[in-house]
Design a protein around this nucleic acid. Structure first.
Lengths: 114, 114
DNA sequence: CGAATGTATCGACGTTTGTCAATCCATGGA
DNA sequence: TCCATGGATTGACAAACGTCGATACATTCG
């Protein structure tokens, strides 16, 4: 399990999003952050994310049967997660391989820190 | 600023929610977590949360003018945040004083940790 | 090339969500 | 007791969202 490429990650973080707790957000910050959390506000997307995280890399076809949803539905959800930069897709041959953007996840985590 | 009562907080944490990244979520976990993130997925609620966090304690009347929304709208949002256990309201006299549930916020933060 | 297959896009449908005017409830002061 | 005030609830409406069948696009294989 977890054939993630070892990775050293987590260098460039928290240069993007303001913390919710440190100072009142202006409307733009609030709108952007809300959009990011909205990507996490769906059970199918959370399961999708956790499946990708566990496997390291997954192609959409695997997600289909794992989640019991129609193919356009899965495609819809991967798109939303990708737009939120929580996953990225790599099209290799006929398949798209998805992996988690751990840096982005850390950014979001930081917005909830004091 | 920040007249928070000193507080020692952050003792009992992470006994509630499974991490999104450690193992695939089942449908129940995913549904509950999604509901929690949905509470954060609205710009008005994020600003509300950050206003309460900054002030330590705020009554709804102050939030009204700060956010430029009608009173039922504010009431609606505080209810959703309270149901998600992200804030708690204390009715003292005629006013309700809101404060942030930092423990709950830490729980959510942990669900995004590896 | 043409058939097969993995994904994305489109269109439609039912549900959920954010918003506010009107109203109700509860508390405190006259 | 009566009135004033802060907040919650109700009802209505428009916008956004999740879902899937049909279809289009792209790549691979024969």
């Amino acid at each position: 399990m977890a054939k993630r490429p070892a990775a050293v990650i987590e260098p460039t973080v928290d240069t993007c999003c303001a913390s919710v707790l440190s100072a009142p957000l202006d409307e733009t910050q609030a709108r952007d952050l809300a959009r990011a959390f909205a990507a996490l506000a769906d059970p199918v997307r959370l399961r999708l994310l956790s499946l990708i995280a566990e496997a390291g890399e997954v192609c959409s076809c695997d997600l289909l049967e794992a989640l019991g949803k129609a193919q356009p539905t899965i495609s819809h959800h991967t798109k939303i997660l990708a737009e939120a930069q929580l996953i990225t897709g790599d099209k290799r041959g006929r398949w798209v391989w998805w992996r988690v953007e751990h840096d982005r996840l850390a950014e979001l985590r930081n917005t909830l820190s004091p």
